[in-house]
């Protein structure tokens, strides 16, 4: 009797128009959430017909700064090609450890196809279809040219293997729920150029190097509470993740260096006062030093076009 009564009341509840509307709403929300939160790989034909070039791939490797995080911090010379990972990136959300991206098929990414690499770099999606944390700068690499990814894939395949397993990230609740990164991407994965309008070919090349491969904005642009780059404060400087220092404002509003000063800095690390670059920027310069002069000049030309902020 009691059972029947409760069944009856459940039936009555389900027949209530308000409850029905709520259920329909919840289903729509779940579908919408799935739609927003699901990993979105690149279109299947993104790399169709592209062949990777190892020599060009090495230039992409330096322009993209892979070794700055994935090689040991004190790596020199050929040590920069041993991409065993391990460097720690502290953040307000936890500490991220750069993974092993050497050619080891188990510990590294030796088994990856060019599509796997493209989805990782341009969409932040792993081969298993889960989201990567944006400590991996896919919000910048998202603007990369597929040909550059193909070239990089060819180059990475020539590098040595290392069996060191990747270190798990040290990230607490709720940021350890990877599905939530779908929401982050929905909000902040934006492939529009920040600096738009008429640009010379040199400035356009510089924009590609700064906004896409070089991922300069990842440190030099401030982030909001959810860790999204604030595009209206592009390259205007930001605190370091540990809160002890700052990444400088490199817009023309603050940085008064000449183009020659910028080129020299990115070549030898000397500031206009002939001090040398410090902190993580020293690692960045170990990458930019490998670029052709024309690329460093292009970066300088682009930086002069960034909206000045103080």
């Amino acid at each position: 009797m009691t059972l029947l009564a409760s069944r009856g009341s459940l039936g009555a509840v389900l027949r209530s128009p308000i409850i029905r509307a709520l259920i329909v709403g919840a289903v729509i929300a779940a579908v919408a959430a799935w739609f927003v939160l699901r990993p979105r790989p690149l279109p299947a034909d993104t790399f169709a017909g592209l062949t990777g070039d190892v020599t060009r791939g090495e230039q992409v490797f330096w322009a993209g700064g892979c070794a700055a995080c994935h090689a040991a911090a004190d790596a020199k010379g050929d040590g920069k090609f041993l991409l065993a990972g391990g460097q720690a990136l502290p953040s307000p959300f936890g500490t991220f450890y750069a993974p092993n991206i050497s050619t080891d098929p188990a510990a590294g990414i030796g088994g990856w196809t060019v599509e796997n690499l493209g989805n990782a770099m341009m969409r932040g999606v792993s081969p298993e279809g889960s989201h990567y944390y944006p400590a991996f700068p896919y919000a910048s690499y998202a603007k990369a040219e597929p040909q550059d990814i193909a070239d990089l894939h060819a180059f990475l395949a020539t590098l040595p293997a290392d069996p060191t397993p990747s270190k798990p990230h040290d990230v607490g609740f709720p940021f350890n729920i990877r599905a939530s990164l779908g929401g982050w991407k929905f909000l902040y994965l934006n492939t529009d150029w920040v600096v738009a309008g008429d640009l010379t070919p040199e400035e356009t090349r510089g924009r590609y190097l700064v906004e896409a491969l070089g991922h300069c904005g990842e440190c030099h642009t401030p982030r909001n509470a959810l860790g999204g780059m604030e595009r209206d404060k592009w390259l205007a400087g930001a605190p370091t993740p540990d809160g002890k220092g700052g990444f400088p404002n490199i817009t023309p509003g603050k940085m008064k260096w000449s183009s020659a000063d910028i080129v020299e800095y990115l070549t030898s690390g000397f500031t206009p006062e002939y001090d040398s670059a410090g902190g993580h920027m020293a690692l960045v310069i170990e990458n930019t030093a490998h670029l052709p002069d024309t690329d460093r000049a292009a970066i300088a030309a682009y930086l002069k076009k960034v909206p000045p902020l103080e």
């Binding site: 020199k76 690390g269 000397f270 040398s276 670059a277 410090g278 020293a282 310069i285 170990e286």
Partner: peptide, 8 residues
């Protein structure tokens, strides 16, 4: 520059 920066 590399030697200066490396030590710094």
């Amino acid at each position: 520059g590399g030697a200066c920066g490396d030590c710094h």
